[in-house]
Design a protein around this nucleic acid. Structure first.
Length: 530
RNA sequence: GCGCCUGUAGCUCAGCUGGAUAGAGCAACUGCCUUCUAAGCAGUGGGUCAGGAGUUCGAAUCUCUUCAGGCGCGCCA
């Protein structure tokens, strides 16, 4: 059909001509032209069925490939500020990044998963302040600075810290004569504590940060997400240190003429990426912006020699892409190396109602809450069930329900049924093996649809890798499970002859293998018994 | 105002590097458990693929445009 216009011929005439030639080849059973110019090729039954043997021999490696060509790919994801527990929004990024990592690895890339810890800057100061204030003030209902964190986790850290330090300040003196602006208020309190008891401040800061990172690591571990590398923003150093990485990046940009001084600040010229305006790297008051750290961080990543950098960001950061691309280009690399995947927010629904997220008050549904409620595997599954750059309505009740609507269990059920069938077959006759005995047998031909479907699997994995879309695997597994359940209902395997059972089992075990392999790409364990 | 994402069956969503009669689940209706797990299966009804224009042999898919919804546009992070 593609050739039709260049050959100035009608697609279906071309198809007919081609068909006559193809049919003469002896490795095809039959060739038919159809519709507006399609050519349907029928494989010889022997070759078609032999897919099963391939799968049962390859096992875990069926579907894996080397198309990634050993390219070094770094995936940076989650990277949530260590100022509070991971919430359900982070969960989506975590599930997505981890699945992308698994899929790229399966297709032959060398993957490194990294978490960027924002352990420098004002956010951590606010965390420290919140902990210290909480430590010296029991009752936070009457008055507590608006911008301080108030969650239970702050109280927990404060209680632990109490054993080690004795803050040499009192609450009233720290918070008297406060500016009305909540931003300025919290900054003032930070200054006050530093002035009054610097050593406690430093100790509290280190401790609070360590506690938060520990809790984040724990949550991610529970969520079956492993990072290869944790990168501290603080390791990039400070602009006050002229030999730090952050200073080096900025100096290079300046000496190349890509950064300049204006209104007392240092700006990056971002014209190259078509960004709206130039961006500030160093503020008027001499402090670096968050962006400056990010520029140095991306330079660091590039210097580490990755072929591809995949950044997984919340969709609200999309306006940030162009300025990072500009920094990569102006630092002498290619923005083509950077792939930013945006993850839209997930709305949680429970009992038909949207679960409210109130970060300010500290009352929110955390990732840990979700895992405790529905389990790691179901949570990962539903996070991945929709394209990442689209809004996700996450229905908690559905994820727990025992109906067909719950695709997670629908797929797992297929897997469990096959496991159980194999057990029963072996109980019936312990000598049962998996051999393809008679492929022309009618009861065996019922398996054809299944064989056809599992033979598509490697292609699905490649597509998911190219598009960075794990959800393709989910929809494929659902279709495969559906075909299996249908087969299972229509055919009573164990009443067949032993010889037929061996053949059928060979097919069904390869179906089981594909389900298991597919789930593995998503970081989900198959269920053996339900 | 500018940028990004989205609009497909009553509902939740697949399909989008153009290709055969647009698919699945739920909901509605009808059947299937003395036999391997009914968390299952089979069937019926349900569509101007938001509207319009264009490119093409061919458009849900590409381009333009209108409408509707979400998000982002700091010397915040």
């Amino acid at each position: 059909m593609v050739a039709a216009s260049t050959l100035k011929s009608k697609p279906n005439e071309l198809a007919n001509n081609l068909k006559e030639k193809l049919i003469k080849l002896d490795f095809f059973e039959d060739v038919q032209s159809a519709g507006p110019g399609f050519i349907n090729i029928f494989l010889k039954r022997n070759d078609f069925v032999s897919t099963i043997n391939v799968i049962n021999k390859m096992r875990d490696s069926f579907g894996k490939s080397k198309v990634g060509d050993g390219k070094k790919v770094q995936i940076e994801f989650v990277s949530a500020n260590p100022t509070g527990p991971l919430h359900v929004g982070h969960g989506r990024g975590a599930a997505f990044g981890d699945a992308i990592g698994r899929i790229l690895e399966a297709t032959g890339s060398l993957v490194e998963k990294e978490y960027y810890i924002n352990d420098a800057g004002r956010q951590i100061d606010i965390l420290t302040t919140s902990v210290l204030l909480r430590m010296i003030k029991e009752d936070i209902n009457n008055y507590f600075p608006q911008n301080a964190y108030k969650g239970k986790y702050i109280e927990d850290i404060a209680n632990k810290l109490k054993k080690d330090i004795n803050l040499n300040c009192d609450y009233e003196s720290l918070t008297k004569d406060m500016p009305k602006d909540p931003e300025k208020e919290i900054d003032q309190i930070i200054e006050n504590i530093k002035d009054q008891d610097e050593s406690s401040w430093n100790q509290a800061k280190e401790f609070s940060l360590a506690e938060m990172v520990k809790s984040i690591k724990n949550d991610l571990k529970t969520f079956n997400v492993d990072f290869d590398h944790w990168f501290n923003e603080s390791s990039l150093g400070d602009v006050s240190d002229s030999s730090s990485e952050i200073s080096n990046s900025i100096n290079k940009l300046k000496s190349d003429g890509n950064a300049y001084e204006k209104d007392g600040a240092i700006w990056l010229n971002t014209d190259i990426s078509g960004d709206d305006k130039h961006r500030v790297l160093i503020r008027e008051d001499g402090r670096a912006t968050y962006f400056a750290s990010d520029v140095a961080y991306h330079k660091n990543k590039i210097d580490r020699g990755f072929d591809k950098l995949v950044n997984i960001w919340g969709a609200d950061h999309h306006g940030y892409i162009k300025r990072i691309e500009a920094s990569i280009e102006t630092l002498g690399s290619s923005k083509e190396k950077l792939i930013v995947k945006l993850v839209q927010f997930a709305n949680l629904f429970k009992e038909g109602k949207k679960v409210k997220m109130s970060t300010r008050s500290g009352e929110f549904f955390t990732l840990k809450d979700l895992i405790d409620d529905i389990g790691t595997d179901a949570a990962r599954f539903y996070y991945l069930s929709k394209q990442a750059d689209q809004h996700l309505d996450f229905d908690i009740d559905l994820a727990k329900s025992d109906s067909k609507e719950n695709i997670f269990y629908y797929i797992q059920y297929a897997h469990a049924r096959i496991v159980s069938l194999e057990e029963k077959a072996l109980k019936k006759n312990s000598k049962i093996k998996t051999n393809i005995n008679n492929i022309e047998n009618n009861s065996y031909k019922e398996c054809d649809k299944l064989i056809h479907e599992i033979s598509k699997y490697p292609d699905v994995v490649n597509k998911a890798a190219n598009a960075l879309q794990p959800h393709l695997v989910i929809y494929y597994l659902r279709d495969l499970a559906q075909l299996f359940h249908s087969y299972y209902n229509d055919n009573h395997v164990l009443s067949e002859t032993d010889q037929n059972i061996e053949s059928i089992l060979a097919c069904l075990l390869s179906v089981r293998q594909v389900i298991s392999n597919g789930l593995d790409l998503l970081g989900i364990s198959p269920i053996e018994k339900m």
